[in-house]
């Protein structure tokens, strides 16, 4: 555990505030003509994702946050947790389903993810921005039906239901943005 002051502030610096780990996403040196220097800083809460702005006065100390990210592969699901393997040490860890939340529905087995640890405990999983998945089931499509903006639900094997264009069929492979859960394009046909 170490402490930082405002001169250490840079993007990606991880600090503790009010008991939660935060990372610096943006910062600016400000100084009123007759006052002390401050660093106007945007911090993102690594647990909730919420972004807050604080003006940190020069000389204030901040405690480093004991957080690290590890690259891990998703192996299999158990009753109420998911089992991951550290790709460099082959250590396995269990992460509760509630920590992963809705991302679990977009997480195929074998996928490699970034797992965030806070005080040695896994607290979050970041999927790759894009995944490709096969459509399990959807209403049959119509060849040539490329009307934009009209969608239908389609189920993928990881469990999520994605809004897809009408021309998509069961067995097609599609590309999905995991951040929004949205369909991007068809990458393979049934």
């Amino acid at each position: 555990m170490s402490t930082y002051d405002t001169s250490d502030i840079r993007k990606g610096l991880k600090v503790m505030m009010d008991g939660s780990p935060y990372t610096v996403v943006e910062f600016q040196f400000i100084k009123p003509g007759k006052g002390a220097a401050f660093t106007r800083t945007k911090f993102k809460n690594l647990l909730s994702g919420a972004v807050i702005e604080r003006n940190v006065r020069s000389g204030e100390k901040m405690e480093s946050a004991n957080v690290e990210t590890k690259t891990m592969q998703y192996l299999y699901k158990e009753a109420d947790s998911f089992v991951f393997m550290d790709t460099s040490t082959y250590d396995q860890v269990q992460i509760p389903s509630e920590t992963i939340g809705e991302d679990a529905l977009l997480m195929p087995e074998q996928i490699v993810v970034e797992v965030l640890f806070f005080n040695e405990r896994a607290v979050g999983v970041t999927l790759p921005n894009f995944i490709e998945q096969k459509i399990l089931a959807t209403e049959p499509g119509f060849r040539g039906d490329t009307a934009t903006g009209v969608t239908k639900p389609a189920k993928i094997s990881t469990g999520a239901t994605i809004a897809v264009p009408l021309f998509i069929n069961a067995g097609d492979t599609i590309k999905i943005d995991t951040r929004s859960g949205e369909y991007l394009e068809r990458v393979g046909r049934a």
Partner: peptide, 22 residues
């Protein structure tokens, strides 16, 4: 305002000013 360890009048003033006014 989050004052941190501020003890001087002007430091407290500018924390308020920068947080809410400026």
């Amino acid at each position: 305002c989050n004052l941190g360890t501020a003890v001087h009048w002007d430091d407290i003033f500018f924390q308020i000013f920068l947080d809410h006014v400026e």
